[in-house]
Design a protein around this nucleic acid. Structure first.
Lengths: 205, 205
DNA sequence: CCGCCGGTTCGACCGTCAGTCTAACACCGA
DNA sequence: TCGGTGTTAGACTGACGGTCGAACCGGCGG
């Protein structure tokens, strides 16, 4: 866990460190990202870095969480309360997914960080960082699925753990495809529509 | 690429090295697996190892491919020619998936290696190993999807690259779930049935 | 028998990594 | 001025993947 000392640092210095770390991890992922390079880039000594953070994984979890929170703040919540029927639910999901993808294309660095996170999340070396971030994302997915079940848009006969896994796996595939192909706006909308259609096919009762 | 010299070694010594590498990578994955430990366990010098293989990634790709080929040989092909209608196609897929999962539970080491491979496949550091193995698996998935399209069981309005990605992503989620939960035989059959149902919902026209 | 040569084996060595540890520093109240 | 506390610096450790030149070995020509 990030030490409270770090939060007491002048905002500018916090920003310098966080920015250097985000840049490094977005460019090289967790494994190939170098803590030593972050230290050099941020102009801080190794001793200080270890005085602020428990280690590389801690720093990674911290900055990734920071960026994800920024993303979720920016995109805003999925308006779950106003949903009446199944179609409305899936339309809301599609809109939301489109917003997320737009945020990713607007910030390639965030997209790279997310891709790296998805790629590395299964690695046991990141177990604690993973748990820290899952606390942020999984309940969100779970709530969304539950809302879909409330309006009869999502099947309720399977363990939610399995459905969450499938949703994450499909989303990861879609993200990778969209980032790799980088289609125009129209084509992207089209692909997202088809993709949410696939998700609907997989999840509806 | 593995050097031809390695194949000229006495079979026993090849096996010693391959076995040590499989053990190491199955236990720790690619990143956290140590080439030095493989070298120690196999009782071969570092110079010789680098005389046989280009490096760690090369060794990993080689032994993983070996294990996958063994798996595919064991499970055998999906009988595509005899398929008449959609239901028969999806039943064949379900049978095949069940066989794969049975092979995994029979050989936890192979399951661990596969899991590690799926987890690490997205990492750019493994690009060449990834391509080497995709040559083995992707055409197989592609052919299966094409056979499904022939009998009208799989939609034909999406790029196959996207569908392959989605299938792999869903499969990965299912594998992870099954390995983590380790249900009994009946429950596993049940879950696989539901899972293939989800896949069908996602892929059918 | 020697000398040589290509294929093979060996392990010391290199740069880099994440992480540890101790000495020094800055500030503050007594 | 002195001790104490919070902070910074960077030398150091062991392990990593990878490189390299020396040594070794079997066979062949002289």
């Amino acid at each position: 866990m990030v030490r409270p000392r770090f939060r007491k640092l002048p905002a500018a210095q916090q920003q310098t460190i966080v920015r250097a770390a985000v840049e490094e991890f977005a460019a090289h992922g967790f494994h190939d990202g170098s803590l030593n390079r972050v230290i050099d880039a941020a102009g801080v000594s190794k001793g200080s870095m270890y005085y602020y953070f428990d280690g590389k994984e801690d720093l990674y979890a911290y900055v990734t969480r920071l960026e994800f929170e920024r993303l979720f703040d920016e995109v805003g919540p999925l308006g779950l309360s106003t949903l009446g029927d199944r179609d409305a639910f899936w339309e809301a999901v599609e809109r939301y997914y489109g917003d997320l993808m737009a945020a990713f294309t607007a910030s390639p660095q965030l997209a790279a960080l997310t891709r790296g996170w998805l790629a590395a999340a299964a690695n046991p070396a990141l177990r604690t960082a993973q748990q820290e971030l899952e606390v942020l994302t999984l309940p969100w997915i779970e709530r969304t699925l539950a809302a879909g079940q409330d309006v009869g848009a999502v099947r309720a006969d399977l363990p939610s753990g399995l459905m969450i896994g499938v949703v994450v796996g499909m989303g990861q595939a879609m993200d990778t495809y969209l980032i790799a192909e980088d289609p125009g706006d129209d084509r992207r909308r089209e692909l997202i529509h088809a993709f949410v259609g696939m998700m609907r096919g997989a999840l509806q009762p």
